[in-house]
Every structure is written in structure tokens, then in C-alpha cells.
Design a binder for these strands. Structure first.
Length: 821
RNA sequence: GCCCAGAUGGCGGAAUUGGUAGACGCGCUGGUUUCAGGUACCAGUGGUGGCAACACCGUGGGGGUUCGAGUCCCUUUCUGGGCACCA
């Protein structure tokens, strides 16, 4: 590949010039319309490949477009710098995680700068720095004060490989989201954040997030899993403690032929005491067998197992005796850990009853069916009630209300909303994270560290073994005094989930050097919400849900105003594949940024990533593809080169003399219109914009008007502005060589001019019976009768009409005439 | 199993509200420049038939609505993503 222009020198030159001139510093200028544009902050894993580059190329193009459209754009970058890979690398290689992280940040910052991105680096943050994580601790204490952070013992997900617990959101198909090892179940005392207190708002407000992809909203909705139903109380024979179950199908209550209780349910020990010795033994055996099984093993992988406790409950409406079972498919943490089994109308209950010989009683009939018929699978839809006392003949919908009302009147039930969402477990038994600011005092118990003692610094690590509690083994850290009574106390030795810091970092960018507050609420009022957030879809229910929770809390505290949603619009970019495979070191198919920049130049790389596919699609990296973009840049250079010695002619659009000039002026404005439309829609399909740019360059080179043509000189002057958001370096160099003095990136993007965009001549498509028979040039705005005359003058059209009578005529102005004969 | 998105030349992909299918690029073919290769430039490039004008076929398969369907409806296959004992 011959280099027509020296991209390496140009890219180097402008990157340092922009930095010297602080071109991309953002001022807090409240008088200008703001635009907060952000890409998800990266984990500093070491090296960037073109998959990352795609994300930054689009984010940067959007930020540059908005600047050139006159917005005050905030476009920051930072590092999600706490986390396991650093710690694991430290254990493997015997280096300090801080050193490993810092080195990676240095390299990745270099690569992101190499891409010619327009970040305001004066706002850069790294979450592992005490200046940042002290505010993690501060926010934790505020949550603690409000009762939104609490410690409790609970069955939790334990990843044996990463040697730490995980939040539910971080377990994918029963496996650790990072290392993919099967998680185990342990009972541990851990810190939780009460995200469930916000469940209702988190699900309700999804409806307002019109700028989010529908599938992301659906995933969050499913994850929160809001269900409306009834909590029903069943009295237990021989016991004064009742069992409460949750059901969304109160209409099926007369079909309840058993109760199933989770083995962890508190009532199990009471039941055990009132049943026969052999039942007690069976209960013990069942509970013990399941105690070590993970939720995945118990629910998805195992068959429905259970054991009859020997005890009976009393049906609140029919007063019949209902046997109480323990079941492995009953989740301890949902719906109170107990359910009423209605085998005729629930798949799972049906399986369980069939397996254990429990009676199946049909109480709902399909609307169409006349009478109860034998069946081999449960009927789970709504229908009409039978065998349900005075509720018989009612529809399911009516019966649900009537039965709920009856139960409520009897004091045996109440309406209840239940969520699948559980509280967010944030304790991690690892070193490289934010220490949780709590001490344990023998006299005072759990005590919050006072604000003025923050930050609790992460102590230097003497030796990393990967065994035991990392902070727990550092005596100087653990042993402290109680802030309340001054007596001896021990520090909490767990660190925080790194999703804690990524749930609010976007606020720190607004005020990154503030040492009195995490951010100034006035700055938040000015800049929030984030107007456009760009990042991978893999965080649909992790980071994006936690951030919404935090932001609602901040809003309730008055630290942010306006909307209580942090991200106005959200965009997920697609992956970049190589040879149809995901890029990975083990496959050896990683396309690195450094090599690509060196071979083809950064502008070509950015152009290719935006051109090859719409941003949301998965794109495939090809060397042939990028050389096409190098070619385009060369042709752009040559188109401008002939005009380097001319004086700048930037000014109003000149009048076009010839058809070629008209076409050229039109092409300029077609590009501008496309770029603006794609930015504002906001669809970001710059692939179509760049295709139109190709067409413009074709016009400027192939069928170029005379070099002296004012239209051509106008096109040449506009070209660097048009490409500035996409190929910022060559744009700047051409702009300078064409005799301009202020940066091309400070120019206004051209307003699409209606005069340039209108066409004077159209192609009239003439169809006969719906088939195209002629394409006739005609003046724009041609009337129907003139169009008909033109069509009938065409020999091919006449041949197809062939003397037949015209029965119908459809005329689409400036487009098409269809003659039906 | 359930829900969502998608399927367009050899390839990546274009195509407001139904109105010229295949823009643009890659690849390929022929030509010009060159000692040659590459680069660059010019022309061609959905399939079939035809010297040509042109005709027929063509947006995963089948059916429908319409003057007209890549676009709307029904049905089916495949691909990608999500959910999957949440009572």
C-alpha cells in the first residue's frame, strides 16, 4: 500500500497540537446548551484492540459532531481500576496490583490518545485512587445511615475460583460472570444494599426511558420481576404458627392439594417437632442433602424432589386438610419460601404431584370446554372456575379479585407485590477494592467510621498468597479503636464490589478534584443527566441497574435534581469479530490498535469501523476493508492538494453554473444532512454518511468541474469540515493547508442548504401494470397530465399498453406513474 | 419450551410514510500508465436468454392484501440475543 499522504506524521502532529492548545477542555459554561456524552469507562486490562476502538470511534464522532453543532460537550474518560484481574496478576507474578494497574492505565491512555479522541483529560479519574474511593466510603456511610446498607447472614453465591461471594446479577446460568466457574452456596454474614426498596420505581420508570433500547428495558423488567398477587395464610394443625404462601393465581386456590416449603424455611424446625420420629428423620435427611447445593443445582439441574413432613395445613376456604411437603424447587428467598401446590394449573406443581402421588384437582376450565375432562398436562391459562364453592362459574379474572377480597375479610390473606430482584450483595473477600468503612466494637457493635477519618486507606500488601482474607491478615489494618467508645475494635476486612464505584463515577467527572464532596450538586444540576451513554450490552442488568438505583437515592437526598434517571439515552455498540470469531488472545486473532494505527493510520481505522456496519451490529474486521478507507483518504487528499496554494474561499455557497456543479454542491449538502440526521435521530448510522462522502469524492475527482470552478473550490473547503468528526487528523491538516488558521474542530458543521438539495430534474418511472417499462427524465414538479403525455410518447410504454384501454392511473409526483391497462 | 431481533449479489452492507431493489465499499474481469510488480486512473460486474433493443426471474421458503411489497398480514425454516422452576 503506497502512502499518498504521511498519516503517521500528521496524526502525531495534531495530537500534540490539540493537547498543547487544550482544544478539548470543557468549561462549565451554563449559557451554552450542554451535551454530556460518555462511553462506559474501561477496565485497564492492558491492551486495546479494534473492538474497543469501535466504541471510542463512535463515541468520539458523536462528541465531535455535537461540538460542531454548537453544543457545550462534556466527554470524559476514566478507569474502572479496582478488580480481580489486577489482584490475580499480582498473585501470579508477585507484583503489586497497584503497579500492574498503573502500568496498564498508562498504556491504555496512550492508546486511547493515539486514536485521536477528544476527551477532556483534565477530568480523568481512576477508581482505585484514594481521592476517588474515599467517596465510595462516604456514599456507603450515607446508605448505611438511611438503612440502605445492612449486614445479615444469608445463603449467598460463592465462587470457589475467585474466592469471593457474588451478587445475584453476577451469576450467569449458575456460573461466575468473570471466570465462568460454577458458584456454590454458603451461609455467610455479608453487607447488602437495599436495592429492593427501589424495586417499584426501578421497574416503573423503565417506561420513561424512551431513549433506551427496548430489549435492555425488557431485560431489566424481567430481572426485577414484579408480580402482583396475594399472600395467603394457611393454619398448621397442631402448631400456632401459620404458613404464608404467595400466589398470583388466587383463582386456583380450591385446587391446592399440598403446600411446599423451602428446606431453609423457619417453620421446618417447628414442624419437625410435631411429627413422628420417622418423618423427622426424613426431614433432616432432606434438609441436609440440599444444604450444600447451589441454587442452580437445586432448581435447574435436579428433578423435583421432596419429602412429606407428616404435618397438615388447613385450607382457609375449604377447611380441608392439605399435606405439607418440603420441596427442592421452592426458593427460600422468594415469596416467603413457601407455595400452595395447584398441580392441575401449574407445570411445576403438576410435575411434583405426579412424581409423589399427590391428588390433582381441576378447578379451572378453558372457556370453550363444557365439563371437566381427564388431562395429561396442566391448564395454566385463565378460564372459568369449577368446584370452587360460591366462586364456581366465575372467570379467572373476577375470581382472583373475589377470592382475594374474601381472604382479606377473613384475615387469611392480603394483596402483595413480590419481586424477583434481591438485595445487592456488595461484600467481596478480596484485597483490590474499596475497604468498607465499618468497625466492630465489642461494646458498641457495628460502628460507622466518622466522615473525618475517611478515606480508610487500603494498606500496602505484604505478600499476596490468594489464601484467606487478604485484609484480615494485616494486623495493622484490622486492629483499631472504636470511634464511639475508644475501646479496642476490629475493622471490616471485606472490600466493596467494584460495581459500587461504577454506579456513580459519571458524577465525579463533573467535579473530579472536589475534596469536600463527591461532587457539587450545582454541577450535577448543570450537566446531568448523561445525554448519550455508549457501551456494551453485557451490562444491561448489572451496571445499568445499579446506577439507576444509586441515582434515585442521590435524587431522594437532593444531591441531584431534575430527572431521577442518570442516562437519558443509551446505545449498545456491537462486537468486532475477526474471521467470524470473537477476538481473544487464546485464538491469536486479536487486531491491536497499535499495529493497525501504524499500518493504515488512525483516521482510516476510525473510518473503517464506522463504515463497515451500522454501530449496533456485529462487524467483521478485514484488511481488505480498511484498505478501501485508506484509498478514500488518499483520494480526499488529492482532491484538496491542487488547491493548497489558493486563498481560503470559505463563504456562502456559490451559484452552480453547470449540471456537474449542481451535483457537486448537492453532494456536499447530502453528506452534511446525513451526518446531522444520524447524530440527532440518534441512530449513528455513519456508514451511510461515509458512503455519501464516497459519492462526493467521486464527483470531485472523476467528473470534476474545472479547478477554477467556484463550486469545486467550495467543495474543497467544505470537505475537511465534513470529515472532521470521523477522520479528525487529516481534516485538520487539509484545513490548515487550505489556508485556514483556527482549528477545523472549532468550525460549525454546515447547515444543509435546501437550495443545494433540491433537484431540478427527476427520473419519472413509468410502470405498466406494476412493471417498470420506462425511465424518463422530467422536470421536477411535472404535472400528471404532462407526465402521462411523456409516458405515452415512449415506444416501450406504448408497446406494452398495445392499444388496450387505460383502466386506472396512479401518479406519485416526482416519482412514478403506473398505468393499468 | 417462552419472548425479542434478524435473513437482500461472491462478501460487508444501502433503500423516509408500500413507489426505480442492490447506493457505497470490498472482491472479481477488461483496459490505460509502468521494464515489471504494486500504486493510481478508466470501464464493467444480481441471474437466465439475446448481436442488440429488450424480456423473464430475483430481497430465506410457501401463501395473502395491493395498481404496486425487501417494506404490510398469515405461515414456515434457519441464525443471533434474552428468559427459563420467581409460585
Amino acid at each position: 500500500m503506497l502512502k499518498m499522504y504521511d498519516f503517521a506524521a500528521i496524526e502525531r502532529k495534531w495530537q500534540s497540537r490539540w493537547e498543547r492548545d487544550r482544544l478539548y477542555r470543557t468549561a462549565d459554561a451554563p449559557e451554552t446548551r450542554k451535551y454530556y456524552s460518555m462511553e462506559m469507562l474501561p477496565y485497564p486490562s492492558g491492551d486495546l484492540h479494534v473492538g474497543h476502538a469501535k466504541n471510542y470511534a463512535f463515541g468520539d464522532a458523536v462528541a465531535r459532531m455535537m461540538r460542531m453543532l454548537g453544543y457545550n460537550v462534556l466527554h470524559p474518560m476514566g478507569w474502572d481500576a479496582f478488580g480481580l484481574p489486577a489482584e490475580n496478576a499480582a498473585i501470579d507474578r508477585g507484583i503489586d496490583p497497584a503497579v500492574w494497574t498503573t502500568e496498564n492505565i498508562l498504556n491504555m491512555r496512550r492508546q486511547i490518545r493515539l486514536m485521536g479522541t477528544s476527551y477532556d483529560w483534565s477530568r480523568e479519574i481512576a477508581t482505585c485512587e484514594p481521592e476517588f474511593y474515599r467517596w465510595n466510603q462516604w456514599l456507603f456511610l450515607r446508605l448505611f445511615e438511611r438503612g440502605l446498607a445492612y449486614k445479615r447472614e444469608a445463603p449467598v453465591n460463592w465462587c470457589p475460583h475467585d474466592r469471593t461471594v457474588l451478587a445475584n446479577e453476577q451469576v450467569i446460568d449458575g456460573r461466575c460472570w468473570r471466570c465462568e466457574h460454577l458458584v456454590e452456596r454458603r451461609n455467610l454474614s455479608q453487607w447488602f444494599l437495599r436495592i429492593t426498596a427501589y424495586a417499584d420505581r426501578l421497574v416503573a420508570d423503565l417506561d420513561r426511558l424512551g431513549g433506551w433500547p427496548e430489549r435492555t428495558r425488557t431485560m431489566q423488567r424481567n430481572w426485577i420481576g414484579r408480580s402482583e398477587g396475594v399472600a395467603v395464610t394457611f393454619a398448621v394443625e397442631g402448631l400456632d404458627v401459620p404458613i404464608e404462601v404467595f400466589t398470583t393465581r388466587a383463582d386456583t386456590i380450591y385446587g391446592a392439594t399440598f403446600l411446599a416449603v423451602a428446606p431453609e424455611h423457619r417453620i421446618v424446625q417447628s414442624l419437625r417437632a410435631i411429627v413422628s420420629a420417622d418423618r423427622a428423620v426424613a426431614i433432616d435427611r432432606f434438609v441436609k442433602e440440599l444444604s450444600s447445593k447451589s441454587e442452580l443445582e437445586r432448581t435447574s439441574l435436579m428433578e423435583k424432589q421432596g419429602v412429606f413432613t407428616g404435618a397438615y395445613a388447613i385450607h382457609p376456604l375449604s377447611r380441608e386438610r392439605v399435606p405439607i411437603w418440603l420441596g427442592n424447587y421452592v426458593l427460600a428467598e422468594y415469596g416467603g419460601g413457601a407455595l400452595m401446590g395447584v398441580p392441575a394449573h401449574d407445570e411445576r406443581d403438576f410435575d411434583f404431584a405426579t412424581k409423589h402421588g399427590i391428588p390433582i384437582v381441576q378447578v379451572i376450565l378453558p372457556e370453550s370446554a363444557a365439563a371437566a375432562t381427564p388431562f395429561d398436562k396442566p391448564f395454566v391459562e385463565d378460564g372459568r372456575l369449577i368446584a370452587s364453592a360460591e366462586f364456581s362459574e366465575m372467570s379467572s379474572v373476577r375470581a382472583r379479585e373475589a377470592i382475594a377480597a374474601r381472604l382479606a375479610a377473613m384475615g387469611a390473606g392480603e394483596p402483595r407485590v413480590t419481586y424477583k430482584l434481591r438485595d445487592w450483595l456488595i461484600s467481596r473477600q478480596r484485597y483490590w477494592g474499596t475497604p468498607i468503612p465499618i468497625v466492630y466494637c465489642e461494646a458498641c457493635g457495628e460502628v460507622a467510621v466518622p466522615d473525618e477519618e475517611l478515606p480508610i486507606l487500603l494498606p500496602p500488601r505484604e505478600r499476596a498468597t490468594g489464601e484467606g482474607s487478604p485484609l484480615g491478615s494485616i494486623c495493622a489494618f484490622v486492629n483499631t479503636t472504636c470511634p464511639k467508645c475508644g475501646g479496642p475494635a476490629r475493622r471490616e476486612t471485606d472490600t466493596m464490589d467494584t460495581f459500587f464505584e461504577s454506579s456513580w463515577y459519571f458524577l465525579r467527572y463533573l467535579d473530579p478534584h472536589n475534596d469536600r464532596q463527591p461532587w457539587d450538586p450545582q454541577r450535577a444540576a448543570q450537566w446531568m443527566p448523561v445525554d448519550q451513554y455508549i457501551g456494551g450490552a453485557e451490562h444491561a442488568v448489572l451496571h445499568l441497574l445499579y446506577s439507576r438505583f444509586f441515582y434515585k437515592f442521590f435524587h431522594d437526598e437532593g444531591w441531584v435534581t431534575g430527572s431521577d434517571e442518570p442516562f437519558e439515552r443509551l446505545f449498545h455498540q456491537g462486537l468486532v469479530l475477526r474471521d467470524g470469531d470473537k477476538m481473544s488472545k487464546s485464538r491469536g486473532n486479536v487486531v491491536g490498535i497499535d499495529e493497525t494505527a501504524e499500518r493504515y493510520g488512525v483516521d482510516a481505522m476510525r473510518l473503517f469501523l464506522m463504515y463497515v456496519t451500522p454501530p449496533e451490529e456485529t462487524s467483521n474486521w478485514t484488511d481488505a476493508g480498511i484498505s478501501g478507507r485508506v484509498r478514500l483518504l488518499n483520494r480526499i487528499w488529492r482532491a484538496c492538494e491542487r488547491h493548497f496554494d489558493e486563498k481560503p474561499t470559505a463563504g456562502p455557497m456559490p451559484a452552480a453554473e453547470t449540471d456537474a456543479e449542481k451535483a457537486l454542491l448537492r453532494a456536499v449538502h447530502v453528506v452534511a444532512k446525513s451526518a446531522i440526521d444520524e447524530t440527532m435521530t440518534p441512530r449513528f448510522h455513519y456508514n451511510t454518511t461515509i458512503a455519501k462522502l464516497d459519492e462526493l469524492v467521486n464527483l470531485m475527482t472523476a467528473a470534476a468541474p474545472q479547478p477554477a470552478s467556484p463550486a469545486l473550490r467550495y467543495g474543497v473547503q467544505m470537505l475537511p469540515i465534513l470529515i472532521a468528526p470521523f477522520a479528525p487528523h487529516i481534516a485538520e491538516e487539509l484545513w490548515e493547508r487550505l489556508g485556514n488558521e483556527t482549528s477545523v474542530h472549532l468550525q460549525r458543521y454546515p447547515e444543509p442548504d435546501a437550495r443545494a438539495l433540491t433537484v431540478e430534474e427527476i427520473t419519472l418511472v413509468v410502470q405498466v401494470n406494476g412493471k417498470v417499462r420506462a425511465r424518463i427524465p422530467a422536470p421536477a414538479g411535472v404535472g400528471e397530465e404532462e407526465a402521462l403525455a411523456l409516458a405515452l410518447a415512449d415506444p416501450n410504454v406504448r408497446a406494452h399498453i398495445d392499444g388496450k384501454e387505460l383502466r386506472k392511473r396512479i401518479y406519485v409526483p416526482d416519482k412514478l406513474l403506473n398505468l393499468v391497462a
